[in-house]
């Protein structure tokens, strides 16, 4: 065997070269749209700015010192809380939906999956404005409740923290449903039957068989909801009345808003990315540890 491989080095190198060639578009894409922008942010974060907001390349730690101010830590903590609540609600809502989808027979399964994805065909902003029409004081929901005499005065629905969470859950729910569905679909029903045969009740077979086996999908869904939800700024502006600054709003304000302070915005963004990288690494290590 070894002789053979050594005898024909040309054929061994060829597939490797083709492999790299196939990887090239992805690599170029990653370098151009992930690595390069991230490096620019890192360079910006150590720079200063002039009075017009232009970046002046020096080396200063001032932006990071400022980012450690309790003001911004509070904003960060609040963003994490909003994203965590959103993720939890999404998980609870998505799990039964994904499970039902996975257990539905062929023609209907496709149709129901399509329904989950249809909202993506409309612009996200338009869908958010639709929620404003529903929730506003003289909106559809209040109109219906008043008409049916369920309430006496219009409820305050829009421009509340609840409205922000509703908007976030609505926007990210499909990102939780789809990965869980992917895991649930692969689960062999015979395993549940086996659990029942061995004396597990419905709750026990869920907790000890179904949940562990769909955990990868659930974990992927948590990542796909939590990460974008924490940086979202449009929903807190539109549905929350911009009362609560989230970290996304603060960063946006540094780049195109009144603050005119790109280096500080870059420092916040870099801290943000570093935290995610750390969390992801810890999570990876934990799951790998469990497998081993």
């Amino acid at each position: 065997m070894t002789d053979l491989v050594q005898a024909s080095p040309g054929t061994a190198r060829l597939p490797r070269f083709t492999g790299w060639l196939l990887l090239a578009p992805l690599a170029v894409w990653l370098i151009a749209f992930v690595v390069a922008p991230a490096l620019i942010l890192v360079v910006y974060s150590f720079s200063e700015r002039d009075e017009l907001g232009r970046v002046v390349f020096t080396f200063t730690l001032e932006n990071y010192r400022r980012a450690a101010d309790p003001v911004y830590l509070a904003v960060f903590g609040r963003s994490v809380a909003y994203a965590a609540i959103t993720t939890a609600i999404c998980a609870v809502l998505a799990y039964p939906v994904a499970w039902t989808l996975a257990r539905t027979r062929a023609p209907w399964r496709g149709r129901l999956l399509l329904l989950v994805m249809i909202p993506f065909w409309t612009s996200f902003l338009i869908r958010t404005y639709a929620w404003i029409t529903i929730l506003k004081s003289e909106g559809l929901l209040n109109g219906l409740l008043l008409y049916t005499h369920t309430i006496a005065a219009p409820l305050e629905l829009l421009y509340t923290p609840g409205a922000v969470v509703l908007g976030l859950v609505y926007a990210y729910l499909p990102f939780m449903i789809l990965p869980i569905y992917g895991s649930a679909e692969k689960l062999d029903p015979a395993l549940i039957e086996a659990a029942h045969d061995l004396g597990c009740g419905p709750w026990q077979s869920f907790a000890r068989v179904v949940l562990p086996l769909t955990r990868p999908g659930l974990a992927a869904g948590v990542m796909m909801v939590f990460v974008p939800a924490i940086g979202m700024f449009a929903i807190s502006d539109l549905m929350g009345g911009a009362r609560v600054p989230l970290i996304g709003n603060v960063i946006q304000d540094q780049f195109v808003g009144q603050a005119r302070d790109k280096p500080f915005g870059a420092a916040l963004a870099v801290i943000f990315m570093a935290l995610f990288a750390l969390l992801y690494w810890l999570w990876q290590r934990r799951t790998e540890g469990r497998v081993a």
Binding site: E51, V71, V244, P245, Q258, R260
Partner: peptide, 22 residues
């Protein structure tokens, strides 16, 4: 009038107060 870099002081003040008010 143009206030140059003082814009950053306003930004910090308002972020702080908005966070506290909420």
């Amino acid at each position: 009038r143009d206030i140059g870099k003082a814009a950053a002081d306003i930004d910090k003040l308002m972020t702080d107060l908005k966070t506290a008010a909420a």
